[in-house]
Nucleic acid binder design. Structure first.
Lengths: 207, 207
DNA sequence: CACTAAAGCGGAGGCGCCTCCGTTTATTTA
DNA sequence: TAAATAAACGGAGGCGCCTCCGCTTTAGTG
């Protein structure tokens, strides 16, 4: 995740040498992504690029050299966040009982989605333009979820007659829920409810 | 079609009094639509609004008063063109044998689509935002087509074992064809081919 | 360390977007 | 026709986008 370029959509066949950036360039690039992540979260994907550059302490020209279009920048930020979400799965799994890890991860998922609501339209454009990005990312997310669910089933802390895709389906309901003011709270409750259901009748000795 | 406002998406229930525009306002509005139609056709929907205003001989403020967003203007232009296309159907029908009218209308349809290729993405945004526009417009187009087809069948100049929806389906193929350089020519040939097929085995005395 | 080429920087400049509001004009009323 | 007023005009101004290119910094070489 901290690797340098996260090359923007490699050409169709093979990934040519990504070529290491000069130290200062790398620093600026990281700064820009960092600032952009905040800006997009706070103001949506229409946040001013000039302001992002300013806050990152670089010239607008530098921003454009690294990210020739707004979409490039959005994509990199989006990837980074999905990867952080997936990394959190491993982290939670190694510090908590499996069912707790699952629950906390789902709550974090809700938080993540919360920042993306309203950006749906813009993201949809991105996905239409480059649908590989979307399938790649959603693949990672569902992999992370599957591992958490399977661990919890194996541990016997949730019931064994469901699988990851059922849980994903339930989370899908969260995403498509109308965008009301109390969306976040309702979603958190929904996750709790879901966990209660999952824990109910868990075989103490595993599936 | 020369009516004044072509109100931009009336509220959900009922159309309130559209209120006549002042004479100068009407004149400016018409001018803007006229110029915009040309500009969009030549440069795509990203044509400069300031330049459109300039060419129409009005200030940018006037343009924005009439069309608060770019999409409003695009929509009005789009409607106007669809209506012209449909009106052409009646006109052709009353000046030519039905099969000739049908053929010429389809060629004109190809021309129309030709100007819209590449704008697909922008139009899709419009339709996502306001899908009523799309269904309304496509309804008009298919009505026009149906009348032409039925007249030709009745006249006996094309075969009677097909109907308008078959023809529409064939035209759909044209639209979704890849956007190559020779698209227009290929489409014209396709229309000819389609007409040959339609004429083949036409009952001389009607269906 | 000095030197150099390549890589990177950054902001001025030109353009477009859109809002705001003082000025102009069409229409109504007397 | 003149006055009154609501409607419409239009462009200056502030901001953002993006390109272009002269200047600076880094990484390599002797």
């Amino acid at each position: 995740m901290d690797d340098q370029q996260t090359a923007t959509a490699q050409g169709p066949r093979e990934a040519a040498a990504p070529k290491p950036l000069r130290a200062d360039a790398q620093r600026n690039r990281d700064r820009l992504v960092e600032v952009a992540a905040t800006a997009f979260a706070e103001q949506g994907v229409d946040a001013s690029l000039e302001e992002i550059a300013r806050k990152a302490g670089v010239g607008i020209g530098t921003l454009y050299r690294h990210f020739p279009t707004r979409e490039h920048l959005v994509e990199v930020v989006y990837r980074r966040e999905v990867e952080a979400l997936c990394a959190a799965a491993d982290d939670l799994a190694s510090h908590h009982p499996a069912d707790v890890a699952l629950e906390q991860w789902m709550q974090r998922f809700v938080d993540y989605i919360a920042t993306k609501r309203g950006l749906a339209a813009s993201l949809r454009i991105l996905f239409n333009t480059n649908s590989a990005v979307f399938s790649d990312m959603s693949g990672r997310v569902s992999l992370a979820l599957r591992q958490l669910v399977e661990a919890a089933v194996a541990e016997g802390s949730i019931r064994s007659d469901i699988d990851a895709s059922d849980v994903l389906h339930a989370l899908g309901g969260i995403y498509s829920a109308p965008d009301t003011k109390d969306w976040r709270d309702r979603s958190r409750r929904l996750v709790k409810l879901l966990m209660d259901g999952l824990r109910f009748g868990a075989g103490k000795g595993g599936g």
